[in-house]
Structures are given as structure tokens and as C-alpha cells.
Design a protein around this nucleic acid. Structure first.
Lengths: 212, 212, 212, 212
DNA sequence: GATGAATGAGCATTCATTCAT
DNA sequence: CATGAATGAATGCTCATTCAT
């Protein structure tokens, strides 16, 4: 099985090209949300995008490149949106900052749950894309940096492993909460508890009282 | 899109049938591990199993039923294997019991990581199969029961949500550790820290000292 | 395309064999009536007949032989049943005899319309089977003989062609009336007119008055 | 058994499309004539048509739609060709008009006997296609109208049933004469007698003399 | 630059038939 | 005599991709 090409053929410069390029990505996103990866075909993408099939191949070498480009675009924007809150998170600090960070993350996931679920859980190659790995690395290092700034967290007995583990737990559970079919109020309460539990790991001394 | 049939056509009774039936499942497992779900075709399964393609359709209505049957068989056995340790876990209690439970789980995951990763992360319908949902429910209730027996855990301020969240964090992270490409020693250390962090959530008061 | 074998492999002699043999033919008839020729498969026949698939091949070399045997059996019985009325038909003579003959024929067709329609209109090779051709020839010669006995009919100006044509018209139309989805009363009236019209051809001089 | 789709997927507009579309229909006709319906496969059609298999599915949803489209096209043209003679038939009137009509019909049938035989006698669903039923209805009403214009025919004692019966006899027998493997001269004589006999039914009073 | 008609390798699935028991 | 597990050639159909316009 040849490894496919995950890069777009060319970056569109003119306005019309840009529109076509984006229409293809949008169409792919719509299909992924309604039909899943199994229902994604290039002809279908072209049809939904309202462009000729040949135009799709004008910009992308194949189906995987469309998905990869979409994934990078979407997940990059996701990280950007969450990262925009980081200054405030750091300013708030401690449990309060953690709460703001996780609540924001869960809401962002929930807003595009249908798409993220497919991208992150149904398409095996997405998580292995270099640009997605970079993205995760970036997000992880954000988290580690923020974590290292908090005076209590420095006491983590095995800093490297602990941050990796907490990262895994937090990342996957934030996804699960965002994917779960919960009422807004229930999701909010779930986040409260989520924050408390993560706090238990990060700030071992004061975990219980901080939830109040 | 018609919903596929996930049940085998007939349960084999005679020895020869049984062998064919199992050969098909084994072949499917091997292909899933080497080629992923995308590379799984019925003709390929038949070829690897060393049986005629028609024999595949003698026992299964289609590809999905093979995967579903395999998933149920494998994950059921997985839960059984882990559940076999539960008495000891309960007897040990506390951090020690938790350590035994999580170490066992991670090792079982690691032993079949390639297969479980495909079944649980690449095939969207597996996690929605009624029998798999029952299995998760069963495992979750095991966990909740064990958790309720530990005197400290009863103090979880929001028992329902906390158990669900801790379950999600533990389950997903156990998978990630098992899937990660780590040396045995490194994995073992990772489990140690993992246990400590989960302990922080379950036994908030004494989390730090118990790890020693 | 090899010409298939239309003969049964062996004629069953013992009672049990006879039952199996006939069960196969009956099953084939039932399937033909409900699913048409396109839905007739050997495995399906065996299943409906309640015998093993290998038993089907014990008695018949293939699917076509089953159909051919069934067709000969059914159509032979049909001709026999109609022929049983011939003495009375000849005794009655003229329009009255013709009426009895055609009414009987149409009723016999109607009684097994679903099966005859498939045998005679959907399965191309049935009408070309030597034994079916013999049967038609036999029926045709019956008709010609009866026709020749009627004093008026001898006056047919072109005896050979006229009998062939009248035979064709009568045979096909009797089938169509029998196949049509008519109430019994309506079918009966249709036969009355049918007889009158055939009378017009056979007894040109007195065709009109005889219908009264 | 799902009822198949009998309509073409899209009507071709450009010249190249038209050619492909018609090549598929022509190939289907050729195969039906040489191999019968049983020998008609989509891959075979594509091969004979000299187009890729995917092109077949570009224009038709399946095999049945190809056959249905071909049947409608062919039988529509057949009815058109015969109908083109109707004015002359009406102008000639009586036996002479009838002779012209039936001779024309039989010749048109004979010219495409191999195809019509398969379409009308081997493929069960063709006769039940709405567009074919409309065609028959149209031809039947032509016949009834012509019949009603002839002064003698109005005397048919049971107009509705008589026209239906005469239609059935004439239609089926015209097919049989056209399908029969006769020398042209013999077929011509057969038509002469055929006309005389139909005349006996339509014009009861003077049936005998008119044949001279 | 954009198109859509055309393609063929490849897939899921069926079914007549055989053969060891 | 009867069985049913096993078979593979053959079929209908899809979909990523190309190419002439």
C-alpha cells in the first residue's frame, strides 16, 4: 500500500481559486459530518461543492490530501481559539485558570463535535500526520509551560511522565465530554467536576477544598 | 445507507465448521493488524483464512458481521481476563489494588495493541454495537462497584459524575499507554505514575504518601 | 453456451425416493409461482423441499432438468385433463362442443395460471423442449382431428394453414383469458364470446346465429 | 426482492454522450438476439458496446433499466412504423385495409423477430412496464377506433369483449407468424389466410367470399 | 482554469455444483 | 441413500482518477 500524498497540489492565490479550494474543504466537512469517512467520495465532494470533479484534482492529489488539509485547517483553528484564552488562564492561575481553560476547550470541541469525532476517531492517518503531531506537540508544550508556571505543579514528582499522563487524561476526556450528547447545564456541571479531578492531580495538597 | 447486519448467519456446531468459522475470524484479525480496516476485504479474508470466499458468506452476511463478531469475541475475552484479577484487586484494596488492576489492564491492552487500536479507534461502528456497549457497561459497573467498596472513595463529592469521569480518564489513558511504543521498563514506570495520579483523584486525602 | 441436460438422472422406484423426487418438483413449482424463474435457485429448492442439496443432484443433473421435468409433468397432466373431455366434445359437436372444450381449457389454465405463465412465458427453453413440442403436436392433432370430423369445418379453404392459424389464435387466447385477472362471471362471459368468435372462423356460414 | 429502477439515470445531451448511450442499447440488443436474456450481463454489454463498464452505470442504474429503455425504444418505433400505415388502411377499408395492416405488422415483426421474441416472451417485466402498457393501450385503441369506423364491425354483439378478444388473437398470432421460420412466400400466404380468418370475426356476413 | 465524460481495477456477493462423510 | 460443508467462477456495481475539450 503506497503512502498517499497528504499535501495540496497548489495554494490558491486568486479570489476565485480560493473560493473553489475552500468550497471543496467545506463540502468534505459536511459529508464527513453526515455520512462519516466511509461515505466520503471525491465525486460526492465535487458535487456538494458545486465544482467539477476535475477541479478537485486541480487542487488536491487525492482524497487523503483533502481530508488532511481539512484536518489541519480545522484543528489548527481549534488550537488557535483555545490558545487565545491562554493569557487569561495564566493570569487567573490555579483552579480558576484551569477551569477557564477546560471549559473553553470542551465548548470548542462540542461546537464541532460531529466533525472532530470523525477526524480524530474514524480516520486513522489524521493523528499520524506530521502537521497534526506538531499541533499536538505545540498544544502539549503550551500545557506544560502553563503547568510549569504554576508554583504548585512544579512539585510533580515525575514531571515528564506526569505531564504526559495528565495531558492524555485531560485531552481524551475533554473530547469525550464534548462528544457526549449532554444538555448544556449537565455539560457545565461535568466540566466543574472534571476540573476538580484534574486539580487533584495537579495540586495534590488542596484538591478537595478548591472545588467550592 | 442501509444498516448492515452484525450477526453471524449461523453458529457452527461440528468441528470442521468451527475451524472454518474461527479461521475466518483469525484471518480478519491478522489483516486488521497489518493493513488496517481500509485493507480488509472479504476476498482477502478468505484467502488468508485458506477457505473459499463462499464459505465466508456461509457463516457471515457480510464484512461488518465478521468485524463485529471478532470485536465481541476479542473484547469479551479482554474483559474476562481483566475481570479474573478483580478478586485479588479487591483483596489488596487501596493503592495496591488499583496498581494491580491498572498494570494488568495496560499489559492486556499492550499484548494485543495492534488489534485493539484498529477495533476501537478506526472502526466507527464497533463502539456502537449493542454487545460492546453492554461490555463497557459491565466493565464500568465492575469499576464502580470496586470503587464503592473502598471506604475513601465513597467520599467522592459527586459520585455519579466522578466515577464516569475517572472511568473515562482511566480507560482512555490505559489504552494510550498500552498503544504507545514504549519499552517494557518505561511502560512499567508510566503505570506507576498513572496509578499515583488516579489515586490522587480517588483518594484525595492521602494521594501523595500512598504512592511510596 | 453448452446446451444443458433436461432429463432427470434416474427415475425413482421406491416410495421414499418417489417422495423426495416429487418434493423437489413441488418446491420448484412453489418458488416459480412466488418468485418467478429469476428467483429459482437449487439451494432454495432443496430448502423448500426439505431435502439436502446433494439429494437434488442425486436425481437431477441441474436446475434446467428440474424445470423441464416439472414442465413436462404439469403440461402433460394439463393436456390429459383437457383430453378427457374430448369424447363429450365430439359427442356434443358444433358450437356446443366447441364451447365445452374452450371453457374447460380456460378453466384448467386459470386453475394453475401462476405456474403456467412462468413455465410458458418466462422460461425460453420450455417451449423448445422436444417433449413439450410433442405435447403441442399431440394437442394440435387432437384439435385437427376433431375439426376434421365436423362436417362444416372441412370446407376450410386452406385446411393446413387455417388449422394452424386457428390453433395459434385459440391456444394463445385461451392462455390470455386464463391468465387475466377476471372475476369468474366475467371470465365465463368472455369465454362465451371467445367461442362465438372462434365459431366464426370454423363455421363461417352459421357463426352468428349459433351464438344465441 | 426490491423492485428495480427502470429509468435511465440521465438523458445524454452532447453528441458523444448520445453515442455512448445508444451504443449501450445497441450492444444490449445484439446480445439479447444472440444469447437471450440469460446471457445478458452488464460487463458483456460494456465490452460489446466498446465502452467502459463504468460508463454503463453512468447512464443506467442497472441491467433492467437498459432492457426497459431498449424495449420502450424498440416497441415505440415498432408501433410508430405500423401506425404510419393507418391512414392508408382506413382509406382502403374493409378486407383490403385489414390485409394491408396485418401484412405490414407481420413484416415489421419478422424484420426484428429475434429481438422482439426475447423482449416480449422471455423477459417477464417488459410487458408490465408502464410505458409498454401505455403503448399497448395506444395500439389497442387505434385498433378499436379503426374497427369502430368500419360499418360492419359495429354490429359486433359485445363490442368491448369482442374487440379485446380479436385484439388478443390478432396480436399474438401476428407475433407467432412473424416469429415462425417461414419462407417469405409461405409467410405471405399465411398472412392471406390470417386476414381471411380475422375477417370472419370482424365481418361475419361476408367472410367467405372476401378471401377470393 | 474549469469541465464532465470516460475509465478499469477492485470490491461484495451469489449460486450451481462437488465430495467427503 | 442422504447429507451439508465447501467451493470458485462469474456478476453487479463503485469510485478514485484521467484526459480531451
Amino acid at each position: 500500500m503506497q503512502v498517499p500524498d497528504y499535501e495540496p497540489k497548489k495554494q490558491p492565490n486568486q479570489a476565485r481559486s480560493r473560493a473553489t479550494f475552500q468550497a471543496i474543504l467545506d463540502a468534505a466537512a459536511r459529508i464527513l459530518m453526515t455520512e462519516g469517512y466511509a461515505g466520503l467520495t471525491t465525486n460526492h465532494i465535487a458535487h456538494i461543492a458545486g465544482v467539477g470533479i476535475a477541479s478537485v484534482y486541480e487542487y488536491f492529489p487525492g482524497k487523503e490530501a483533502i481530508v488532511a488539509t481539512l484536518a489541519v485547517q480545522e484543528l489548527d483553528a481549534f488550537v488557535e481559539r483555545v490558545a487565545a484564552h491562554l493569557p487569561r488562564v495564566v493570569a487567573m492561575g490555579g483552579q480558576a485558570g484551569l477551569h477557564h481553560l477546560l471549559a473553553t476547550t470542551v465548548e470548542e470541541v462540542h461546537a464541532k463535535a460531529a466533525l472532530y469525532r470523525v477526524l480524530l476517531r474514524e480516520i486513522p492517518f489524521v493523528a499520524r500526520l506530521p502537521r497534526i503531531l506538531q499541533l499536538q506537540e505545540k498544544a502539549f508544550s503550551h500545557a506544560r509551560a502553563a503547568s510549569a508556571q504554576a508554583p504548585e505543579a512544579r512539585q510533580l514528582p515525575d514531571f515528564e511522565r506526569d505531564t504526559w499522563l495528565i495531558w492524555q487524561m485531560t485531552y481524551n476526556t475533554a473530547l469525550e465530554i464534548g462528544f457526549a450528547d449532554l444538555e448544556e447545564k449537565e455539560r457545565s456541571r461535568m466540566v466543574d467536576e472534571f476540573v476538580r479531578l484534574v486539580g487533584c492531580m495537579l495540586f495534590p495538597s488542596g484538591g478537595r477544598s478548591a472545588a467550592t
